[in-house]
Design a protein around this nucleic acid. Structure first.
Lengths: 340, 340
DNA sequence: TATGGTAATGTTATCGATAACATTTTAATT
DNA sequence: AATTAAAATGTTATCGATAACATTACCATA
């Protein structure tokens, strides 16, 4: 590999002069600058980022850790983060924890050891607390995305899960539904808890009974066992008329299940969920959802983080951005008549 | 940040001894090892990856550059690459070029400057040639994914685009279609060219006329202007009975267009495409597609690359893996009767 | 022509780790 | 107790860059 010393030797200057040309610092005569530039071209010089960040103590790169790279919510979020980082001249590195604490802790290690300047992270859940504490202990600035973690104070971009869930359920109630089930993510994930609250609130406000057997806790990730949902569904004493899914992945699992059981949506059962399904479900925009502004999550998250990096020691108060969800009413909810 | 020198000082040993404990090299007495380990824990030591790779001249990390992070084909591919890399103890970093040469060249720069050990890359197209030449010039091993680039010899994992396209079109012909259009990716992308060949071959074999006006070249990426497709479609002298899309993103654009024009699939027009639409379209598996083994692209790509890294100087012949596509017949093709 | 200030360039130390070689301990053998 | 090999640890140089300080070159002014 070509180093600044190779350049220096060939251009008959010192390494420091080459460094100055590269970084446009200090005073350099036009003649030397041209000479050095020419040699750099000839030798195809590329600076060694590792060496540079070793001495500079910063990398100008940000790590984005998401929990599910196959979920359009997160990929869209990633696009937003990428655009924002690019605009500010930061390199963005991605990681995918797969909703898995072991993978998450691995990535935390990567983050620490590569000395990135900051981190955007969608935590796997409340048990991510020690991981985030580790980041704090090592003084790595981070912004949480999509999920709060009790015990951690930091900048954060959230969706209004409670409100979104409430509106979904209100919609179901307005269509005459009274037996409404919730298949949710793990209660160790803050957004799942809030969606449950929204669900309960809506039932209460609507004067609808909240039955325990209509609550089922699965996981938000795609690798979570769908068997549990089936057992739950098959064991119900009375079938609900509508199911709300805690996120898009769960909605998928539910619809698969209903399909296996020969039940049609919405004729036999209505389904709604949090999060839209992304462009590839657009062929037939069928599911009624609370769609989040995924792109904004990433874009604003990067902005918060870069702001934090810029001020560094000044301890301005933590920012908390809450993005509303859009209720998109489509065709997966049946209007029930009193007869139903 | 805590360094091995801090550890060394506190444990009353030399930095080298600490390094030996960390890397499990050389001979260390159990007593010192325990002592050093304890201090490392106390101080929350994390090795500095930049410093290490500076002296080791390797990073044990691989870069995966994909062209569309919102496309389930690539995200699934990424999952495969992630799993394979993880299994071999390599760190995987992602980048998203967005089918955009400018972003691609930026990432090439990142790749070179961070001195990753190797690269998995889905090139934006034939114009990526200079980018790949740069990698070659700098001796960075890489594996191409999904697309060949004329002028580049290297390990590669491809899908059987020609065969897949042929089978899609044969299926259309078998259903009585004779006016079959192809909306394809840019002809500067090898897979698009092969899909065109497969299309033409099938028409020929089926004794169906190949009309120029039934060929339209758009782009594979989601940011490509859909306006072009509309103009093309609206300007046709005779409407086709079926359209084949060069990939899933184009299929989406076509279906959107038909929807706007009030045409129903498959009643008014049949549609098929290359690549499946991912799990989020599974709610209603509607589109007939040639599905590729996306996960395998990533998984095998990493395996090829790591094999190459292991041998290093031995110049074994280039590997070329061609993965077949599965024809999934669903409901987006209408069976035409002679009357149609 | 000497003088001083600025422009241009160079030298040395440093970032945090490891390789290569050097030295000291330790324990076994005579 | 002397000898010696192996085990354990230490020293120094190095990776590729930049910061901080040092020096030289150059030009304008007195």
């Amino acid at each position: 590999m070509v180093t600044i010393y190779d350049i220096a030797a060939k251009a008959n200057v010192s390494a420091m002069t080459v460094s100055r040309v590269i970084n446009n610092t200090g005073k350099i005569s036009d003649k030397t600058r041209a000479k050095v530039r020419k040699v750099m071209e000839e030798l195809n010089y590329v600076p060694n980022h590792n060496a540079r960040s070793l001495v500079l103590q910063q990398t100008r790169s940000i790590f984005l850790l998401i929990t599910d790279i196959t979920n359009p919510f997160y990929t869209t979020l990633a696009r937003g983060a990428e655009d924002a980082a690019r605009k500010s001249g930061y390199r963005l590195l991605f990681g995918n924890s797969d909703e898995n604490l072991a993978k998450e802790v691995d990535y935390i290690q990567t983050i620490l050891t590569t000395r990135v300047d900051g981190v955007l992270i969608a935590p796997a859940g409340d048990p991510s607390l020690p991981h985030l504490d580790t980041l704090k202990k090592h003084n790595v600035p981070f912004v949480l995305l999509d999920r709060e973690v009790p015990g951690i104070e930091c900048d954060i971009v959230l969706g209004d899960s409670k409100d979104g869930a409430r509106r979904l359920v209100e919609h179901l109630i307005s269509q005459g539904h009274k037996r409404i089930a919730l298949v949710n993510g793990s209660s160790s994930v803050s957004s799942a808890r809030l969606r449950l609250q929204g669900y309960q609130e809506a039932l209460k406000l609507g004067g609808v009974e909240c039955r325990d057997e209509y609550l089922f806790e699965a996981g938000f990730g795609p690798s979570h066992d769908p068997h549990g949902i089936k057992c739950w569904f098959d064991g119900l004493s009375e079938q609900p008329t509508a199911i709300m899914a805690g996120n898009n992945v769960l909605a998928l699992a539910i619809i698969r299940l209903l399909h296996e059981r020969g039940l049609k949506v919405p004729d036999d059962l209505s389904v709604v969920c949090f999060d839209d399904l992304g462009p590839f479900a657009e062929i037939d925009p069928f599911l009624t959802v609370a769609a989040q502004q995924a792109y904004q999550f990433g874009y604003l998250g990067i902005q918060l983080l870069i702001g934090r990096l810029a001020e560094r020691e000044t301890a301005s108060p933590w920012n908390k951005i809450v993005l509303p969800a859009d209720l998109l009413i489509r065709r997966s909810v049946k209007r029930l008549t009193p007869a139903d």
